[in-house]
Design a protein around this nucleic acid. Structure first.
Lengths: 175, 175, 175, 175
DNA sequence: TATGAATGAGGTTTCATTCAT
DNA sequence: CATGAATGAAACCTCATTCAT
């Protein structure tokens, strides 16, 4: 993942992966049928890890808004603390290397997030919009903020975090 | 750009570009020093075109909110009507193939957009946040919405467009 | 042998041999010093089996012509009933993988056949030609007939068998 | 073809072909889509050349038997004078590398030979047997004789040639 | 004795780039 | 200025063989 984050999906030969990991090319191909499979595997694992990270410290009894902010911050913090993962994920999210099957499995692991949004809509906390669309808007603001830091355009402070989360909430909350 | 959108940045050999364009490899290298240069050139042109597209029908005398919605919709419409460009842009935005120089030139061509945001902050229409951050949040919601369509996850209707734009505005407007 | 008949001498990795035989690669290399040795071993065994098959039902007191037909038919029947062996043998017969030593050992196991031909020449049943040449002509007609079936070009019936054997005999018999 | 005759079909890497031919690997792949295609191409060309060689000096007005001997000798001489071609052909004739399509095209180029055999059967010169079977028997004797020389088992003299051809004719002629 | 993960040289193929025409 | 064949380094992947368990 490091190598792909640094050099790009296709500019990362297996020979480099072998060198950096200290595992021979033969062994790599003993465990994975192809380079494509490695990347799909990494992608899926990462998707799950990100979904888990979002729910860290999640308290089902806390007020909805509080939970919304927690998850938004959790997600942003995860990406800010792991620029490698952010870069890797962004590259995979477009690439045709990621199979349809993997994408669907990835989506499944994000089902709890979709459930949280649906709950918000039905309980009247969030605007009545398509769940997918809301998720994308939330995701867009998180990714947008994180990429600012990654590209070096802006050093994200706590104030920025709170401001961005607030903007996201204000945009989506009912009323 | 079509080829790169279809196959990915590195899965597009110059030989294919030559075939699809009807221009011999030799001629391509007569006009561009390298494949990298071609992509940087395309990227920069596209950045400008997108900035121009955002300002289509812009009326400096219209109310701020109206102008905000116009530009948001212009940008989204551009991406929805040109999935090739969206895909190409998304790939470039991460790739190390795009030089620092090109990125900066791209940012310069987006200066009018930054100016519009700054104006909004100073005039009290938008929240007092870092211009870069606001731009990223806006950009994030637009890209997020457009990618929904591109990935086939949701067919974006007029209602979705208006809702997303409204959410973006609600999130960023002062008060 | 099955694998080699199906896929070819060099398109049969040891790993497949291991899988199909249910014997681990390590064990294979415990009993054979190399893949080459396995193939030489199989080849030699098969040569012997084919020589034995030719003599099935052989009656030393039967007339020479009768014995000729018996052995010709025996040999053809063996190959027709064991396409795997035919394919394997044909591949080995050319391959540089088969060592000189193995080839000579193979020839030695075919000595009884050579003896039968020599007997025929000396007794005046067969034309006075070089023993090797006669053996090759006989072998050529048998292989030629068997390969017709293997390649699917012709379904060899009893009539074909008899006709081909007769043609071989007519070509080689004295007078 | 030389390399394959020397080392075997699969023990001939493209890198060696490149070195021996003085053509870079890249250029080889400019003209052939794959190594398989090269071999199929060589095989087909050789098939045609062999069919042509068989008809060298063919006189349609000569007696049938004379023409039979001419073609038999032509074919044998071709193989004896070109051991490389013999070895290459024998390897291809079994290999799964040769596509069904190529095999059929090869058979088509041998149609004149089949026609010659059919003519012989219908005119009463040859036994009434399946054309394919006769062709295979003839082919078998020629290949068998030629391989004797190739394997070093026997140095084929003019006497051997005449004897083998006569045996083949005697075996197949009517009456 | 049996296993099978590990190795890495070497196989086929691709592709950015050059250059004679 | 245009062409496209030629190049060869480097990509992905395979496989005979070894060796710790």
């Amino acid at each position: 993942m490091e190598l792909i984050a640094e050099n790009g999906l296709h500019a990362t030969p297996v020979s480099q992966i072998s060198k950096r990991s200290g595992v021979s090319a033969g062994s790599i191909y003993h465990y994975f049928p192809s380079k494509e499979a490695i990347i799909n595997h990494l992608y899926l694992n990462l998707k799950k890890e990100m979904a888990d990270a979002a729910f860290r410290g999640y308290d089902i009894n806390a007020p909805y808004k509080e939970r919304f902010f927690l998850m938004w911050q959790n997600s942003l913090n995860y990406l800010l603390s792991k620029p490698t993962q952010l870069s890797f994920m962004e590259q995979c999210s477009i690439s045709p290397l990621i199979s349809q099957e993997t994408k669907e499995a990835g989506k499944r692991s994000h089902a709890p997030l979709a459930g949280f949004v649906t709950e918000g809509c039905e309980s009247g906390y969030l605007k009545k919009m398509d769940t997918q669309l809301i998720l994308s808007l939330v995701h867009g603001t998180i990714i947008g903020t994180a990429k600012l830091q990654l590209s070096g355009a802006l050093d994200i402070t706590d104030e920025h975090r709170v401001g961005a989360a607030q903007a996201c909430w204000d945009g989506l909350k009912e009323e």
